[in-house]
């Protein structure tokens, strides 16, 4: 994946880029309106992360420039503006998704993966991790070509893990991803445990290795053993 990160906050940009890099992903970064326009004009990307408040101009203008140029890039707006108008404006102008700061990097990665998959014409609707493969159109999960049945939450959880393979995902991020950030249950995420336990059990029973590990009590990781 080739990703352009348009963000004026240097240290936030560094975190995003270091998280997204690797596994064949290439990240480029720009921190101002004019630099962003230049990059867009010269190159093509799979996905563009767009901050709305930039030095030199409004991020939404970049979006309309992209549409004018008839570019097919997926655009994910990352903004601190938690206002409904901005969200609707952005989506109306052709953005693919809108993520409000602050966000978890794992959430960002999952959203980017989803956008790129939707945008790609080659039609790769299958996500896989070793012997586990997920057909996203049929919502069918296979382990060694044998279908297994997951609940909606377990299915979402598996896709979230595969999107963030090799990364530690916090319980907090998982809870927000599955239940929405409006459920304010910051005190206790034990209820996530049941879903993870069930998912692990189903995968192992179907013959997969035990890829999901608990990490220091903070979160979980799907990774090669």
């Amino acid at each position: 994946m080739k990703i352009l990160v348009i963000e004026d906050e240097e240290s936030l940009m560094q975190s995003i880029v270091s998280y997204l890099k690797g596994e064949g992903n290439i990240c480029e970064m720009v921190n101002s309106y004019w630099n962003a326009l230049e990059k867009i004009n010269l190159y093509s990307y799979d996905c563009i992360l767009l901050d709305l408040t930039l030095p030199g101009g409004d991020g939404l203008k970049i979006l309309s420039e992209l549409k004018k140029m008839n570019k097919q890039e997926g655009v994910l707006i990352i903004s601190a503006r938690h206002s409904l108008d901005d969200k609707l404006n952005g989506l109306e102008m052709g953005a693919d998704d809108y993520l409000v700061k602050p966000f978890h990097l794992s959430e960002l990665k999952a959203r980017i993966t989803a956008i790129v998959r939707r945008k790609s014409f080659s039609g790769s609707n299958v996500m896989s991790f070793n012997e586990i493969s997920v057909n996203l159109l049929a919502m069918d999960v296979k382990v060694n070509d044998k279908s297994i049945i997951l609940t909606k939450k377990e299915y979402d959880l598996l896709i979230y893990f595969i999107s963030n393979q090799g990364k530690v995902i916090t319980k907090n991020a998982i809870a927000e991803h599955l239940w929405g950030d409006e459920i304010d249950m910051s005190d206790d995420f034990d209820f996530i445990y049941t879903h993870i336990k069930n998912l692990r059990k189903k995968l192992i029973e179907a013959g997969a290795k035990d890829y999901i590990k608990s990490m220091y009590g903070v979160g979980y990781k799907l990774g090669n053993i």
């Binding site: 906050e9 240290s11 936030l12 975190s15 995003i16 270091s18 998280y19 601190a80 700061k101 602050p102 966000f103 978890h104 990097l105 794992s106 530690v168 916090t170 991020a173 990490m215 903070v218 979160g219």
Partner: peptide, 11 residues
């Protein structure tokens, strides 16, 4: 957002 992302990175 920076603190949050730095924690994610730290992990």
């Amino acid at each position: 957002a920076i603190i949050n992302s730095k924690l994610d990175s730290l992990l």
